[in-house]
């Protein structure tokens, strides 16, 4: 439990709470609430040998793989859906064997987190038998239920060293407010040894209480205020997904060489204030217009 009354840190300190070799849980999912500012800062700091776990992910994992920060990938999905397709750097690394893919399944990961949350050494899970998933997970076992005689796959607890979460709002103590879907964030927060969060904005505790607190402060080790800290992922109610910025990454990701130039230009050669400047304030503001009309919202995806 983290009991300091003021958990505010700068982004560099926050990213420094992740050590090389850590098991790192990534919050959010697909194009929403990805902890992108923390991802970029870890790349700037040259983090290595991470074992990343998550549900369905995209740019966060792909960019860490591109930067050579990941050794083991354990998610249920990494990609850009039908829109931009397979994840370019992740795919290259998996096909050339430079990362170990321990692909998993949403329910299995959830069950492993629940075991960690409950402090029990295993839990049973439905499915898996008959699939090839155990070729990726020799640590799973089978057990006969003492009550029904059913044979079930059992899985060990998953206790990440750190969970990296992004929330639109938080307070100085580290209470976090999120909009649904929370995906696995609540479970990551309880199961992990610590939570490091970014928030678009720090507000008074009373405002958070009014909206409802999603992750309580006692689970959070540090919170950094970073405007557009999930960009190009969405962080509702503030801003929608930046599809064109994501497209720019995909176009740069054709080869590792062009991807290195992208990382140099957008990440390594600048900080988050510089990143926002280079994205352009008009472009970023455009993402906040989603609530003005259906046409404005739809236009962000055209």
């Amino acid at each position: 439990m983290f009991l300091d009354p003021d958990k505010r840190v700068d982004l560099s300190t926050a990213a420094g709470m992740v050590a090389d070799g850590d098991v790192v849980a990534l919050g959010g999912g697909l194009s929403a609430r990805l902890p992108m500012a923390l991802i970029r800062e870890m790349i700037r700091q040259g983090r290595r040998n991470l074992h990343v776990v998550g549900s369905a992910h995209s740019l966060d994992v792909d960019m860490l793989v591109a930067a050579g920060a990941i050794t083991v990938c354990e998610e249920s999905y990494v990609g850009f859906e039908q829109d931009f397709g397979l994840a370019p750097a992740y795919r290259r690394a998996a096909e050339s064997g430079t990362i170990q893919v321990k692909e998993s399944c949403c329910v299995t990961i959830l069950t492993q987190l629940r075991a960690a949350e409950m402090g029990v050494p295993f839990l049973p899970v439905r499915g898996i038998k008959g699939t090839d998933m155990r070729r990726l997970h020799p640590e799973y076992a089978e057990m006969t239920c003492p009550f029904t005689g059913e044979v079930l796959v059992v899985v060990p607890p998953l206790r990440p060293d750190v969970a990296l979460l992004h929330a639109p709002l938080g307070d100085t103590r580290g209470n976090l407010y999120m909009e649904q879907p929370y995906v696995l964030d609540e479970h990551f927060a309880s199961a992990a040894r610590s939570v490091v969060a970014t928030v678009d904005k720090i507000v008074a505790t009373e405002e958070l209480v009014e909206r409802g607190i999603t992750i309580p402060a006692h689970l959070v080790r540090g919170v950094a205020e970073v405007p557009f800290g999930a960009h190009p992922a969405s962080s509702y109610p503030h801003y929608a997904y930046d599809r064109s910025a994501t497209g720019a990454y995909i176009r740069a990701a054709g080869t590792q060489e062009s991807l290195e130039s992208y990382l140099d230009e957008w990440v390594r050669s600048t900080d988050e204030a510089g990143y926002r400047d280079r994205q352009g304030s008009a472009e970023l503001e455009r993402l906040t217009t989603w609530s003005e009309s259906v046409d404005a919202w739809k236009g962000l995806f055209a």
Binding site: S55, S76, A94, V101, C105, T108, V125, R126, G127, I128
Partner: peptide, 18 residues
Amino acid sequence: RPKVKLGGGGGGCNISAT
């Protein structure tokens, strides 16, 4: 060393059973 690494199955592996 896959020829094509696909994206992954989300929750299908477990819940396609039930």
